[in-house]
Amino acid sequence: MAFFLKFILISIILIWVFRVLIRMIFPAVLRNAFSNVQNQANANQQQRTSNSKPEGSISIDYMPKKEKKGNADKLGDFVDYEEVK
Rank of each mutant, 00 (worst) to 15 (best):
K68C: 03
N44I: 09
M1A: 11
S57E: 11
L30I: 13
N44Q: 15
K6Y: 03
V84T: 12
I15E: 00
P27R: 08
F26C: 08
F7Q: 06
L5H: 11
P27S: 04
E55Y: 07
A28S: 07
K68R: 09
N39G: 09
M24S: 05
L9T: 12
I58E: 01
L9V: 07
I58P: 00
S57N: 01
K6A: 09
D77C: 01
R48I: 10
I13A: 12
F26L: 15
I60N: 01
V79H: 14
K6R: 10
M1I: 03
G70T: 02
P54L: 09
D73C: 02
Q45Y: 13
K6L: 06
K66V: 06
Y62P: 00
Q45K: 15
K66R: 11
N44M: 14
L75D: 09
I13R: 04
N44C: 06
D77S: 13
K53P: 00
F26V: 15
F4R: 13
F34L: 12
W16C: 05
I10D: 06
D61S: 10
L75P: 00
Q47H: 10
F7W: 08
R23M: 01
E82F: 13
S35D: 14
K66I: 04
N51L: 13
L9Y: 10
S59W: 04
S59N: 07
F4A: 10
Q46D: 15
I15D: 01
P64K: 03
E82Y: 14
K53A: 15
M1E: 09
G56K: 00
K85E: 13
A41C: 01
S57K: 05
R23V: 00
R23Q: 07
N39R: 14
K53G: 07
A41M: 12
V29Q: 15
I60H: 02
I13W: 03
Y81V: 12
P27E: 06
N39E: 12
K66N: 08
I58S: 01
Y62T: 01
V17E: 03
N32V: 01
M63I: 03
G76L: 04
I25A: 07
N71H: 11
F18R: 03
I60S: 02
I10W: 04
Y62R: 04
D73G: 05
N71P: 00
R23N: 08
P54M: 07
I58M: 03
S11I: 04
D61H: 05
L21S: 06
I8K: 14
A43M: 11
A41I: 11
Y81A: 09
G76W: 05
L14Y: 08
I10Q: 06
K68S: 14
M1K: 10
L14S: 12
G70I: 03
Q38I: 09
N51F: 08
I13T: 06
L30P: 02
S50E: 12
V84R: 12
Y62S: 02
N42M: 14
L9K: 13
V37F: 13
N51A: 13
E55S: 08
I22Y: 10
A72Q: 12
K69M: 10
R19W: 01
N36L: 11
N71L: 04
N44G: 10
I8Y: 13
R48A: 15
E83I: 14
F26M: 15
Q47K: 14
V37I: 14
F34D: 08
N44T: 09
S52H: 05
L30N: 15
A2G: 03
M24A: 06
